[in-house]
Amino acid sequence: MIILNVLALYGLVGAGTAFAFVIFGISRVLPAGTPVSIGARILLWPGAALLWPYVLLRWVKAGVR
């Protein structure tokens, strides 16, 4: 049960982080002016949700720079 709760929490935080990332963060981690279509942002959401700790780290780093 604990494992399931931890997984659910990971998924929930991931879903939210990924949502914010594909809307706001993606342009921060790419070279300026790189176009990303809405369709691509939708397709990138699951990957961002799964890899959210790394995605968040890169987003924060890109923001600091």
């Binding site: 691509a40 699951p46 799964l50």
Partner: peptide
């Protein structure tokens, strides 16, 4: 398989 499918886009290759 989900992880691989979700990261199959070229964006992930560059990222």
């Amino acid at each position: 398989l989900l992880l691989l499918a979700a990261t199959s886009h070229d964006f992930w290759l560059a990222f």
